[in-house]
Amino acid sequence: MTKKTYQDKDRDLDALLRDIETWFSGQGYQIQTNKTDGTWFLQAAKTEMWRKAIGASRAFNVLIQGQPKDFSVELSTGEWASNLTAGGVAAVLTGGATLLVSGLAAGWSKKIESDLWNFIDQKVMFGEKAKSVQELVVLKTQNTLEEKLKQLRDAYDQGFIDEIAYNAKKLEIEGQVRVTQQNAGTEEKLVKLKSLLNAGILSQGEFEMKKAELMRESSNSELDAQISKLNAALAAEIITQEEYESKKAAIQRESQLAGKIKQLQNARDAGIITGEEFENKKLTLQLSPTYKDHVTS
């Protein structure tokens, strides 16, 4: 049994296990894995006939424990678990983990072990970093939407919906994916901005101005979502091309007005303009020929 401890690495341990799984699969091993809180476990073994040929009846065990910044990786050999999910990791390891066996199998196992450690060291050094909360939210949403796209395609292939309905729904779901990614990026930038403000690197005024820029980006993502729905309605022939152009122009004007008012609010909050100036400028915007038909109460 050999073990290494890695500190201050900030690595995505799910990705590390997947990389190790790919490494074994590429060499013709059968794989099974088990994951619990803070523990990742993998078993890899060659076919029964191959193992008998070289006298190696045991499987490779890879045990990862810890958190993204500080974790350990342990390699050993042990009996292949007939049902890893039912037995659990502890049952496999307490069943008799050992380093290696003798003869031809020992030499083969040592070579595999050495190559695997080299691979793991490289992945720890250059592999994927642990994902932020925002990135995990995006991944979860993307997986959900990708599953929806798959179900939509299956429904179309089986003739439950026609091509027009399929294309309309597909456009809508793809628009949701883009908006999710954009919103997550904005949220992450806001968190970083707040940390710079708290550290005294940005003044309150600078913070508000930068925040306003991010809010404009966020408004653009909301605009994309609305236009994506319009595209879907057009593709489904729910609205005409003329209606599409009219509604799209109205949405863009509303988005521009909302963005400009948000800039004014940030300027007021940062003390750049007074409350009275804010109200006057806001009224001027709302009464301008560009926006006055789209003011909401």
Rank of each mutant, 00 (worst) to 15 (best):
L16C: 12
G88Q: 10
A130Q: 04
A86P: 09
S114A: 13
K189G: 07
L202E: 00
S218Q: 06
T22H: 08
L264N: 12
L104E: 13
N118A: 14
D8W: 08
S218T: 01
E146R: 01
Q134F: 14
I173H: 02
E113Q: 02
S288M: 11
E237I: 07
S203F: 15
S109P: 07
F24E: 04
S228Q: 00
D14I: 02
A45S: 15
K210I: 03
E237S: 12
V92I: 06
T77Q: 14
A45I: 08
G185E: 07
A233M: 13
K4F: 12
W23F: 05
N280M: 09
M215N: 15
V89F: 13
A81W: 05
E245C: 06
K111Q: 09
F207I: 01
I64M: 07
P289V: 02
L116H: 08
S218M: 04
A235M: 09
D8Y: 09
Q27R: 05
T284H: 05
L93C: 11
D293R: 05
K292W: 11
Q204T: 00
K110V: 00
A233F: 15
L139M: 06
T274I: 01
T22F: 08
T290L: 15
K123F: 11
F24K: 00
K192L: 14
A225R: 04
L223M: 03
S72V: 03
S195E: 05
A225P: 14
E79S: 15
W40D: 14
S219Q: 10
L145T: 03
E187V: 04
L196Y: 15
I161L: 06
A270W: 10
A267Y: 14
E146D: 12
M49V: 00
E243H: 04
T284M: 03
I251R: 03
L100I: 03
A90R: 01
S57K: 00
G205E: 15
A233S: 15
L193M: 01
